[in-house]
Design a protein around this nucleic acid. Structure first.
Lengths: 155, 155
DNA sequence: CATTCTTTGACTAATGTTGACTAATATTAT
DNA sequence: ATAATATTAGTCAACATTAGTCAAAGAATG
């Protein structure tokens, strides 16, 4: 049985609301109060249960009038392709390999020509101006994976 | 709902007016009174929400008959839009300002929604996993400038 | 019993609000 | 003209109000 811990309860609460509305906007402390937990527990729930892999997009703002917004997004069909490419990338990738991955995306009609061009720029060695090759490849992997993750869903 | 703080409310108020007129001329104290805030809050709103990155030009005059004038500039009328944006970016840019620039490009139909989304990902703080703020902002400037330069060429 | 998941709270970071002080410009008095 | 005064806006730092991070402690699981 799921739901024996408070994180599961909070998860269900939020997902119930999201079943009706496209998105939900909460005040962290309010939810924390509602379930009598510390505020950072809300972060834990979001981090473990509202990931992009699950089809949720989260954004937030601090300061007065701050909020956490959770949106249910429409996952696309190319997820398998993206997953396998992300696995290939790992934590480090050369510019050459990165370009060929982007080429694959273009060949598979996942991205347009122009989108592919922009992605190539974003992983280009010369734009980083980093001399350390390992750092460069690690950074490129981070950026490329983030880009691929963005392609999982629309709007 | 987004915009629970008074700064957002004032921002919306001013932008609503700017939707009709090319520019708006306000008396700082009047707006401050209207929303029951201290006058310097108006400066805060302008400084954070009506930057050139957002496509707004602000000028003011002190003394009797003083005013603050906000103008919506059409960056695309200028053939050197990209140049001026690149100049604004310089060697370092915050995530907030970078997002503003990309938003402007989208508003002005320079990039599609999807392209803008990908660009935002490419300048997102969380994709870099760098703890050094200065390095982060410098890297972001490099990447954003490269992306803008790529937009010069059509494909 | 080892491992993973959950809970907690101290500390950090981002954003917004306020007011005292400063600076610029215009108006009035001399 | 010049000086004094009034009338605007600008700056900056303190304080307020949110959310994020991280690691340690506790609980559950297999």
């Amino acid at each position: 049985m799921e739901g024996q811990n408070i994180s599961d309860v909070i998860e269900r609460y939020l997902k119930t609301i999201l079943a009706d509305s496209e998105h939900i906007e909460i005040r962290r402390s309010e939810i924390a109060n509602l379930f009598d937990v510390v505020p950072s527990q809300i972060n834990y729930v979001i981090k473990t249960r509202f990931t992009i892999q699950n089809g949720y997009l989260v954004e937030s703002k601090r300061g007065g009038g701050g909020y956490i917004r959770i949106e249910k997004v429409n996952l696309l069909d190319d997820i398998d392709v993206l997953n396998s490419l992300i696995k290939v990338i790992g934590t480090s990738i050369s510019e050459r390999d990165a370009v060929s991955i982007i080429q694959t995306l273009y060949d598979e009609n996942v991205v347009s020509r122009r989108e592919a061009d922009l992605m190539v720029v974003a992983i280009d060695k010369s734009t980083y101006s980093i001399s350390d090759r390992q750092l460069e490849d690690a950074l490129r992997a981070n950026i490329l994976i983030s880009l691929l993750n963005r392609l999982r869903y629309e709007s």
